[in-house]
Design a protein around this nucleic acid. Structure first.
Lengths: 232, 232
DNA sequence: GCAAGCCTCAACTTCATGTTGAGACTCCTG
DNA sequence: CAGGAGTCTCAACATGAAGTTGAGGCTTGC
């Protein structure tokens, strides 16, 4: 598996990425390390040595910066969020990092709290739950516990409902999301079959990249169509 | 229609938005005007007077900043892009503004150029076209012309194909996008029925907000699911 | 008439994102 | 084994975005 895992010097990395990112410099890569976004090995002499993983990571960072204008802090928190999948298993006691932007931050809410935090009525929440848009953890006594991901979902759902859509319309979106997940699942099940941490990490990376790309793809298709709708 | 369209002073606007944006200040609103993001009327004495549209616009700007970390320049170009729908009709000769990030920038590519710019092979492009993911303008002699939106689509499609998905998988995503568009279309067809520029603008705003919210909703649903997949 | 609200304009602040340069070490090649 | 190319660290500097502050002066409403 590790055969031929060549490590590249910083200059080689620049040369490699130069095509996609013409103004990437050595000093910028060093700067990224200083900010804690990457952590290349070091040769005995102290030279930075980059493995394929590191290079993929750099590419990801630069794309987020270029295409989504994200500040490095935010990119960092996204990065560590996807990594936490592993660490959650090994250190279930450690609290969430201070700036976790994604990743389960451990928030949990009941219906009332979710209602207040999202602006949805309890009735609307019920409907979203029955449509599968929200999926709280349900206890035997019917108490429902919502997590931070549900809050994000609830907030955006609120925006759509405010524009006149109905919960059943949101169901359409949810089903599309499910199909998307199925697609990605096929992609990584081989990797997850054997419980190998290296494979798990690779799977996480693939999923992160795919889900983002898919979301962008859909958004651009929709936007193109809507533009035509407005102009035509 | 314009009855009761009360204009608010800058202080009233702050008070109104204070709930959602606690650290909004008068000076910031003035700053936004200085940057060309908003353009409130002026009272005879020179006081800024904000109409509902202006306030919605401010809210949009602040959300983009807070939730997506977008620089003001980019927000501005998004804003003007959605508005151009109108102006395109009235001034078809005017070139695109220098920094248009969305809106058709007038780029057009043939198959080879798209291939070079996106990294897709011509064969892949063909497949994406036949799956409806890419929709070039097709001339009688079978020449195809791609526009800037196709370039965006092609680039993200490239990322997905690189991860091992097939063009037919992308078709699934495209169909979901179509359904989404149908949903939104229902929402605005009443507004677009009569060719009224005010309604058109309102429709553009609704579409912009909905498409963004929907995209976010799907993304968070997918992410929540994928996280469970990785952890479970 | 006067306090509260608003105006402009220029100077200032803070933060993010890198860049530059000095001085020193390492690696490869002839 | 000399020396040029590549790399290291660390501190100082540069630039731009996003506001803030303050001075000096109108306007409005009680």
């Amino acid at each position: 598996m590790n055969v031929g895992e060549r490590e590249q010097s910083i200059g080689e990395v620049i040369a490699l990425l130069q095509d996609e990112f013409p103004d990437l410099t050595i000093s910028k890569v060093r700067f990224l390390e200083g900010q804690g976004l990457i952590e290349p090995r070091r040769s005995p002499a102290g030279y930075r040595m980059f493995r394929d993983d590191d290079i993929r990571r750099i590419r990801y960072i630069l794309r987020e910066q270029r295409d989504h204008f994200l500040p490095l802090k935010v990119i960092k928190s996204k990065l560590t969020a996807w990594e936490r999948g592993e660490e959650v298993k090994t250190r279930p006691d450690s609290g969430p990092p201070p700036e976790s932007y994604f990743g389960a931050s451990g928030v949990s809410l009941n219906v009332d709290e979710l209602s207040r935090a999202s602006g949805l009525s309890r009735r609307q929440i019920e409907e979203l739950v029955s449509n599968g848009v929200l999926e709280p953890i349900e206890f035997p006594d019917r108490t429902k516990v919502f997590r931070d991901e549900d809050l994000t979902i609830a907030r955006t759902a609120m925006r759509l409902l405010a524009q006149g859509l109905e919960p059943r319309h949101l169901r359409t979106l949810k089903i599309a999301a499910d199909r998307e997940v199925d697609l990605f699942q096929q992609l990584v099940t081989p990797l997850l079959r054997h419980r190998n941490p290296d494979n798990r990490r690779k799977a996480a990376e693939i999923l992160a990249d795919c889900s983002q790309a898919a979301s962008e793809l859909q958004e651009s298709i929709v936007r193109a169509r809507l533009r035509r709708l407005l102009e035509g």
